[in-house]
Design a protein around this nucleic acid. Structure first.
Length: 215
DNA sequence: TACATGATGCCCT
DNA sequence: GGGCATCATGTAG
């Protein structure tokens, strides 16, 4: 993608997503979400995800079967499922498993890597005049949370729902820059009522950009 | 056509 | 730590 800015990276293939969402959610930790914009490249490391299992998972949007809204989750793997929630926020998911079988992974938190100023601006956060100490706490507000990261990447349902995250022509992609995750923590998912006890939330241990409180 | 609800974040206390 | 904004979607009537 942008080899000067990011070093050597390889784009993930559709096969990466063609498996159980629990495995995809784990494997996505440490990868980079990359957006090409007219103003420049945005890149952030994926530090927190949640798996949604399809028809056997009461908390998944696909639990009651296929509808116009959730069709992407029933489609081929590696595509963006974007939905609008609470009248304010968009959330980004990626479809998993083969065409016809529902399942997906929710992106919950990102660590900003490139295009930080642009992402801060998209969030209404000013960084320029801040002290280093204050900047550190503001950086966390850019994309620590599913609604926040969607806003930072300017992700909307209109623009991004159904888009491939693995196509070389896509402006929104996921790449591997060789970063290796040391330890992964697994907890129950956040903000749900049904099936709230299942341990399907994954995050990089010790990472400061994970949303909410760390265990 | 009406209504309840939600994979959230912000602001105020 | 709690209330609230705000609306698309699905389901019931």
């Amino acid at each position: 993608m942008n080899t000067i800015l990011l070093g050597r990276v390889t784009s993930l293939k559709a096969d990466f997503f063609n498996r159980d969402p629990r495995r995809v959610a784990r494997a996505l930790l440490g990868k980079l979400l990359v957006r090409k914009t007219p103003q420049g490249i945005l890149a952030s490391r994926i530090v927190e995800t949640e798996a949604y299992l399809g028809q056997d998972d009461a908390a998944a949007h696909t639990a009651a079967g296929r509808t116009a809204r959730n069709a992407v989750l029933f489609g081929p793997p590696g595509h963006a499922y974007v939905y609008f929630i609470y009248g304010n926020h968009y959330c980004l998911n990626v479809s998993c498993l083969p065409d016809g079988i529902p399942g997906g992974v929710l992106f919950r938190a990102l660590e900003p890597v490139a295009g930080v100023e642009q992402m801060a601006k998209a969030r209404g956060i000013g960084l320029a005049k801040e002290t280093e100490r204050k900047k550190t706490s503001l950086l966390k507000k850019i994309s620590s949370g599913p609604g926040r990261m969607a806003e930072a990447f300017e992700i909307t349902r209109e623009r991004d729902n159904g888009k491939s995250l693995v196509s070389s022509r896509s402006d929104l992609r996921i790449v591997d820059d060789g970063y290796r995750v040391r330890r992964i923590v697994v907890t129950p998912r956040i903000g749900i009522v049904k099936s709230a006890d299942q341990p399907l939330r994954y995050f990089i241990a010790g990472n400061a950009f994970v949303s909410g409180r760390q265990v």
